[in-house]
Design a protein around this nucleic acid. Structure first.
Lengths: 141, 141
DNA sequence: ACATACCTGACTAAAATGGTCAAGTTTAGA
DNA sequence: TCTAAACTTGACCATTTTAGTCAGGTATGT
């Protein structure tokens, strides 16, 4: 299972973007400064976000990124999937006919991790960027 | 966040133990063979389980491990904590006065990961070994 | 006494993580 | 048109974690 700082940064950056892109595109440089995330790393992350059509970019001076949908239409699932934070708890391959651990049957815990995966995904499916904005209406920085 | 095969193995092994320890202690060798987990690795895992009083051991011939509580009293939280599968989603330290990422305030997503952590822990708090046994009454191996 | 089984600690190959670095291309505005 | 801001791409890398292995023990029932 993966849930690391790449996913966290992605969410942080998008919340930042949602708050500041009302007029002009937001540059990664600004996000980098406001959120304290390395610019180079942000570029990697936004490359993935763009491929997954979560953000749109404008090049050149005064360029930057904007959200490609409304904050309430962007679920955390979308974001985390985009940056490869796949919530996979099971090492056992579902398709594998051999079952888990090279055994003929599914391992005892197989269903458990499936349940957990659903449990977590449900959480991320419900939460949108909009929800995070609500909780952060106070000024910061 | 960590949730890796060590935790999975621990759960698998304990389910196995719960099913076979009715008369005699169960040797790690047997568990290793039945579950397809390396014996050496199992020993590491059981060392931790023992330290956390989830299992008791008997040495010597015919020795092995037994659960130290009833299956319905052993929650998955207990197991996963014992083998250091701490479900920590937030890199930001809660205590740190400096806030997350060296900023003066909590990062925008701070509460989010807290919520997620609770969400996951709730899941593990509810599930006991007993619950897993129910779903695996059919013979295997 | 000896085989079985627990116990302990050191070690390690491979992968993931969290970045950095370098070399572009594009475009707005002076 | 020139230039600086900003996106784009891909290679690279140090550190940490993972998932074990290996080598030696120690305890104990028969």
């Amino acid at each position: 299972m993966k849930l690391t700082s790449r996913g966290r940064y992605a969410v942080m950056a998008l919340v930042d973007l949602a708050r500041f892109d009302t007029i002009n595109p937001v540059s990664l440089r600004d996000i980098s400064l406001r959120q304290g995330i390395s610019l180079d790393y942000l570029e990697q992350i936004f490359s993935k976000l763009k491929k997954n059509q979560i953000v749109k970019s404008t090049r050149g001076t005064q360029g930057g990124y904007v959200l490609s949908k409304k904050p309430n239409e962007i679920k955390l699932t979308n974001i985390l999937n985009a940056v490869d934070e796949t919530v996979k708890t099971v090492q056992c391959k579902k398709e594998s006919k051999k079952g888990c651990n090279g055994k003929a049957t599914k391992c005892v815990t197989h269903n458990l991790w499936d349940e957990l995966e659903n449990h977590i995904n449900t959480f991320f499916d419900k939460k949108s960027l909009q929800d995070l904005l609500k909780n952060n209406t106070e000024r910061f920085n």
